[in-house]
Lab assay of single mutants.
Amino acid sequence: MIFPGATVRVTNVDDTYYRFEGLVQRVSDGKAAVLFENGNWDKLVTFRLSELEAVK
């Protein structure tokens, strides 16, 4: 189960963010908004829950 605050990895091989890890900001309607941070940039991207896996 994916909840806000969880760290997730993108599993969709066709996505630009494949294998990126980010922090879930919100979850609704089968989608999750994931925040990616890297140095001087932040990006908030929405994914279907089926495209994400929780990082242990």
Rank of each mutant, 00 (worst) to 15 (best):
R48I: 08
Y18K: 02
E21K: 07
L49M: 06
T7H: 10
R26A: 14
E21V: 14
A32R: 01
D29I: 05
G39T: 09
V8R: 00
V27Y: 03
L52S: 01
D14I: 08
D14F: 13
A33N: 07
D15I: 05
T7F: 10
A32L: 03
V13I: 12
A54D: 06
S28W: 15
K31H: 13
N40E: 12
Y17F: 09
P4I: 10
L49Q: 04
R19D: 12
R19Q: 14
L23C: 07
D42Y: 15
T7D: 02
L35I: 07
L44C: 09
S50L: 07
E51H: 08
V24H: 00
V24P: 00
A54W: 12
L49R: 01
D15V: 06
W41D: 11
E37P: 11
G5K: 02
F3L: 11
A32T: 02
I2A: 03
M1Q: 12
N38F: 15
P4N: 05
D29S: 07
L23G: 02
K43W: 10
M1I: 09
E21Y: 09
R19L: 14
R26S: 15
G22D: 00
F36C: 03
R9G: 02
M1S: 13
Y18A: 04
F20D: 04
N12F: 04
D14V: 08
F36A: 00
N40V: 11
L44R: 04
D42T: 15
F20C: 13
S50I: 08
E37L: 13
T11S: 07
Y18T: 02
W41S: 12
F47A: 00
Q25S: 06
T11H: 04
V24Y: 00
M1H: 12
V34L: 03
D29V: 05
E53P: 00
E21T: 12
F36I: 09
V24R: 00
V24G: 00
S50F: 08
F20G: 04
Y17C: 07
M1K: 11
Y18W: 06
V34Q: 01
T7P: 05
T7N: 06
E51W: 06
N38L: 14
G5A: 03
T46R: 04
E21A: 06
R19F: 08
V55S: 05
L35T: 05
L52C: 02
P4R: 07
G39C: 09
W41V: 12
D15R: 08
A6L: 10
D15Y: 04
L49H: 03
T46F: 12
N12D: 07
T16C: 10
I2R: 01
E21L: 12
Y17K: 03
G5P: 01
V45K: 08
A54H: 10
V13W: 06
L52F: 02
S50T: 11
V24C: 06
V13F: 07
V8E: 01
E51L: 04
V24Q: 00
V10Q: 00
N38A: 11
V8D: 01
E53F: 06
L49C: 07
A33V: 15
N12P: 04
K43E: 11
R9V: 10
Y18M: 02
A6Y: 08
V45N: 03
D14M: 11
R19C: 11
T11E: 03
K43M: 13
K56W: 12
F36Y: 02
V34E: 01
T11M: 08
L52E: 01
N12Y: 05
D15F: 03
G39L: 09
F3G: 08
E37D: 10
V45F: 06
W41C: 13
V13D: 05
E37R: 15
Q25Y: 09
S28D: 11
V10R: 00
I2D: 01
F36K: 00
G39K: 09
K56R: 11
A6H: 06
A6Q: 13
W41T: 11
A6E: 08
D42N: 15
S28E: 14
W41I: 13
Q25C: 13
K43H: 10
L23Q: 10
T46W: 15
L23N: 05
T16L: 13
N38M: 14
P4E: 09
V13L: 07
A32W: 02
P4A: 09
D42I: 15
G5N: 04
R9T: 07
I2Y: 04
A54T: 10
D14Q: 11
E53L: 07
T16P: 15
N38D: 11
S50A: 09
E51M: 05
K56Q: 13
D14E: 10
V10N: 01
G5M: 04
G5F: 04
D42V: 15
M1A: 13
V8K: 00
R48C: 11
E21N: 05
G30R: 04
I2K: 02
M1V: 09
A32I: 06
R48H: 14
L23K: 13
T16N: 10
R9I: 10
A54L: 15
